[in-house]
Amino acid sequence: MANLSEKLRDMQPGVDAYITPDRIARYLTAIADTPAPSTAATAMRAPVLQDLLRSDGALKDGQLVLDSNFRNTASTVLIAGDQSLPKPLWYFAHMDTISYLTRPFDGRRFPLVPFCYHLTINGTRQAQAYRYDLLNERYFVVDDGWIESELGNAFFRPKDQSTRLRPGDRVVPVTPCLPQEDGYWTGHFDNAGGVSALAVAAPLLAEAGVNALFAFPDEEEGPTGSGNQVMGRGGSRIIDQLPPPDLAIIADMQQAGMTLNTEEMTSEPQNSVRIGEGAVLSEFSSLARGAVTPPSLYALARHLIDLLPGLGTKVQESNNIYTSRSDDISVMLKTPNILLLGFPGINRHFDLASPQAALSDIVDLSKALVYAAMLQPVIRCLNDRGGHV
Rank of each mutant, 00 (worst) to 15 (best):
S149E: 07
L53H: 11
L165V: 01
L134C: 12
P114F: 02
I275F: 15
V363G: 14
V141R: 08
F110A: 03
C177L: 03
S324C: 09
L375N: 09
R138Q: 13
L297I: 12
M44E: 03
V210Y: 03
S330I: 12
N211Q: 14
L375G: 10
Y139E: 15
N72R: 15
A215P: 00
E317R: 13
P243S: 09
E263V: 01
E219G: 04
P294H: 07
L382M: 11
S162N: 06
V113E: 00
P47C: 14
I362C: 02
D133W: 01
C116S: 05
G145M: 00
L260H: 09
Q83D: 05
V292H: 04
R54C: 09
L300H: 10
A74R: 06
Y298L: 12
S267Q: 06
L297F: 14
L59M: 06
S296V: 03
I362T: 09
V280I: 14
T335M: 05
M11A: 12
G234C: 07
R325K: 11
G345L: 06
A199F: 05
Q241T: 14
P158I: 01
K87E: 01
D327R: 00
P176S: 08
G194S: 09
M265V: 11
I147R: 00
N3L: 13
T39S: 13
P336Q: 03
M332A: 02
L59T: 03
G227Q: 13
G312N: 12
R109P: 06
S282D: 14
G312A: 08
L339H: 15
M1S: 05
Q241N: 13
V171E: 14
S55E: 15
A373N: 03
R26Q: 08
P47D: 11
P336A: 06
A373V: 04
D182C: 06
N383K: 05
F284A: 07
V195W: 00
G225N: 11
I147Y: 04
L382K: 11
V48K: 01
D144W: 09
A206Y: 04
D328I: 06
Q126P: 04
L165T: 03
A36N: 02
V195D: 04
M11C: 08
Q180H: 01
S99Q: 06
S84A: 10
S326K: 00
E220T: 02
A17P: 12
T313C: 14
A368C: 12
Y91R: 06
F216N: 13
Y91D: 10
N153K: 09
A32W: 03
P86L: 02
W90Q: 02
S196R: 08
P223S: 11
D364I: 11
I362N: 04
M253G: 02
P88E: 08
A43P: 01
N122A: 10
L64S: 07
G145I: 05
F105D: 10
A36H: 04
L281N: 14
I31T: 04
H388M: 08
L333V: 01
R385I: 06
A43H: 15
R45D: 00
R348K: 11
G183P: 14
V273M: 09
L213N: 10
S68P: 08
I321T: 14
T335V: 01
G235H: 01
S296R: 15
A197L: 13
A288T: 10
P294N: 12
G276S: 11
A201W: 08
L28R: 03
S354K: 04
T224P: 15
M374V: 03
V195S: 08
